[in-house]
């Protein structure tokens, strides 16, 4: 098991955001976390990546407990992520943004770079190639030298993914990659997620677009008020009466049809 979450608990000033959560993510899958707004999905991501410290519980990555590690140390364990509200380095170009993603793969230090020793020049050249590859992978080749503050939302979303991929992570957490995208862009995102998964990286996905989730996921975790409502394969979730009921109220017939069909529905 790549990632194992046990008894995870987090509350903010008396309000429980995540309550006793358990789930496991096998290697190589696309694992989606769904649930209405405020169900605790982003809080979960923030705990997995070390931004928040859980009140209780453990997160085990490749057999190692990562609770309490600083985010940069968790990143060094091969965890990468993107953000719901973009976190772009707007003071840098697209290429430089993605080069930051290569940070852990470059072997050079302060002094060797300041003096431009040949060793760091070679490293730098390799890193540039990695970054360019990541940009190509995400279909951003024509933006390589653009400044990042002049790009559209959709491009920036993909740039964040390229940056996360440049780390060569084992696992990538994507927080609502399709939010705010139009239909074409969403379709591109779908194929991008598939390609990431095919390249051997485990994908942890938070997304409201049911159409996308149903098409791309191997397993789905449904959260409701911070607890686990259901967990299983995409097929199981689509046929789970509890999920159907929770998702669109008591009118289970139409709702069921919707979730089943994977209709383009945004949960509210």
């Amino acid at each position: 098991m790549l990632l194992k979450v046990e008894g995870l608990l987090k509350s903010f000033g008396g309000v429980t955001a995540i309550a006793d959560l358990n789930f496991e993510v096998p290697e190589g899958v696309v694992y989606s976390v769904i649930g209405p707004n405020g169900a605790g999905k982003t809080t979960l991501f923030n705990m997995l990546s070390g931004i928040y410290l859980p009140d209780e519980g453990s997160v085990t990555l490749n057999g190692r407990n990562i609770v309490g590690l600083a985010p940069y140390k968790i990143a060094r364990c091969g965890v990468s992520r993107t953000f719901q509200n973009l976190q772009i380095f707007f003071n840098m170009s697209v290429l430089e943004n993605v080069l930051v993603g290569c940070h852990l793969r470059i072997k050079e230090n302060f002094i060797s770079t300041a003096l431009r020793l040949p060793l760091s020049m070679r490293e730098e050249k390799k890193a540039r190639q990695w970054a360019i590859d990541a940009l190509h992978f995400c279909g951003l080749e024509k933006y390589i030298n653009s400044p990042s503050d002049a790009l559209s939302y959709g491009v920036l979303k993909r740039m964040e993914i390229a940056r996360a991929l440049a780390m060569k992570p084992n696992i990538i957490m994507m927080d609502e990659p399709a939010a705010g995208l139009n239909d074409t862009e969403t379709a591109e995102m779908l194929s991008l997620i598939r390609r990431i998964s095919e390249s051997g990286i485990t994908v942890l996905l938070v997304e409201h677009n049911m159409h996308l989730v149903m098409q791309v996921s191997d397993r789905i975790l449904v959260l409701d008020y911070g607890s686990r409502l259901a967990e299983g394969t995409t097929h199981e979730i689509q046929n789970n009466p509890q999920v159907i009921a929770a998702y669109l109220g008591s009118d289970t017939t139409t709702a069921g049809a919707d979730v089943k069909a994977g209709g383009n529905h945004y949960a509210v």
Partner: peptide
């Protein structure tokens, strides 16, 4: 030289977004 290198980018990254910089493995 420094600014246009791994360390320099780490520096500018934390200016752009401290959280994203941490997530890229930057202490």
């Amino acid at each position: 030289n420094l600014i246009d290198s791994r360390s320099g980018r780490a520096l500018r990254a934390l200016h752009g977004s401290e959280i994203a910089a941490e997530m890229m493995g930057i202490n």
